[in-house]
Computed example of a mutant assay.
Amino acid sequence: MSYAGWILLTGALVGISCGLTGVLLILRKMAMMADAISHTVLLGIVAAYLVSSSLDGGSMLIGAMLAGLLTAWLVQWFESSGINTDAAIGVVFTTLFSIGVILISTSVGNVHLDVNHALMGEISFIPWNVIELPLIGPVPSATLLLLIVTIIVALVILLFFKEWKITTFDPALAASLGFPVLLMHYVFMTLVSVTTVAAFDAVGAIMVVAMLITPAASANLWTDRLSHMFLLSALFGVASSSMGYVVAIWLNTSISGSMAFSTGLIFLISYFFAPKHGQIAKRVYKTNEI
């Protein structure tokens, strides 16, 4: 595959994995949790390196998953103690992220692991870091990791679709029917954590937030059906990554930044022209009522 092809494929996998996960974030009103986890996984990545002395993708995933779960547990604990949700997220997010930054500055040394890379990412470097696969040949390691994570996210959502639906829309009813609401919550936080760290090399933590939230918010304007929302969100994520690459090449600017810009552009179009909840559709409906 060509250099541009690997970048487009990597961006598409980011769009699909973040798009699918983002739907549940939007519907559960946990958008700020995405921002928190996308930053606190930095602590998990640094801790994984300090323990294993390796930048291996597997140890990074485990560290990020544990950091995401720690974030979710701490936020939940503060909430149960009477702290406002936004305040709890803010305190946990800033504290854990700052610990990660301090550890990078004081303990990591000259290893290729820095705050700017974690925050902003650089998708143009992805095709150069490859691993050899039997019968396939050289494949970018970040792309392979994203492919595995995307498959896992899609399978977990598909296999437990009924559980996600009821625990998202009516957790009280789900609990009364015997569904493991708290367990599903932590499984979901794990998915968010794994998806976030898998996208680090591609778009960085800040851009992951755009990919997690904006395509799902756009899809929410087009349909009220959960299955359709998943499909549209993934589609918008892929479209955003492709559009972002074209814009970046055209303007000779940051690919990650252009991808984030494209998610906002798709949301703006959806906000006005979506047939279900778009502003123009609402005005036409009100006019017809009159």
Rank of each mutant, 00 (worst) to 15 (best):
S254R: 10
R225V: 04
W222A: 02
F236L: 15
F230A: 10
S240V: 06
G244P: 03
H228Q: 11
G237N: 00
R225Q: 11
H228G: 13
S241T: 14
L221T: 06
L251V: 13
S227L: 08
T223M: 07
M229L: 12
L231S: 11
Y245S: 04
W250N: 10
S233N: 07
L226H: 00
M229N: 12
T223I: 07
D224S: 14
L231Y: 03
F236N: 09
S240H: 01
S241D: 04
S227N: 09
A248L: 11
A234I: 11
A239W: 03
A234R: 05
M243S: 14
S227R: 10
L231K: 04
S227W: 02
R225F: 07
Y245M: 07
V238S: 08
M229W: 04
A248M: 08
S254F: 10
H228K: 11
I249F: 13
R225S: 13
F230P: 00
M243V: 10
F236P: 02
L226Y: 01
W222Q: 03
S242P: 00
S242A: 15
A248W: 12
W250H: 12
S240Q: 04
V247N: 02
L226F: 02
I249V: 13
G237A: 04
M229D: 09
M243G: 14
S240Y: 01
N252L: 13
W250F: 14
W250M: 13
L235T: 15
L226V: 03
S242N: 08
F230V: 00
L232W: 01
L221W: 05
W222V: 04
S254D: 10
A239E: 02
V238L: 07
N252S: 15
V246N: 07
V247P: 02
L226W: 00
N252I: 13
I249T: 11
L231Q: 06
G244D: 03
S227F: 04
A239Y: 00
F230S: 03
M243R: 01
F236R: 09
L251P: 09
V247K: 03
Y245W: 11
I249N: 14
F230R: 01
T253Y: 12
A234D: 08
W222C: 06
V238T: 12
V246Q: 12
G244A: 05
N252Y: 12
V247I: 10
L251R: 15
A234F: 04
L235Q: 01
V238R: 11
A234V: 08
S233Y: 05
M243E: 08
I249Q: 15
L251Q: 15
W222K: 02
A234T: 08
W222R: 04
L235M: 12
S233D: 10
V238F: 07
S233Q: 08
L251Y: 15
T253D: 14
F230E: 01
L235F: 10
M243I: 14
A248I: 07
G237D: 01
W250D: 05
T253I: 06
V247Q: 06
V247L: 11
S240M: 03
S240C: 01
A248E: 09
A239I: 06
W250A: 13
S240N: 02
L232N: 04
G244F: 06
N252P: 09
A239L: 11
A248T: 08
T223D: 07
M243L: 15
M243N: 10
T223H: 06
V238N: 12
W222D: 01
V238D: 10
T253S: 15
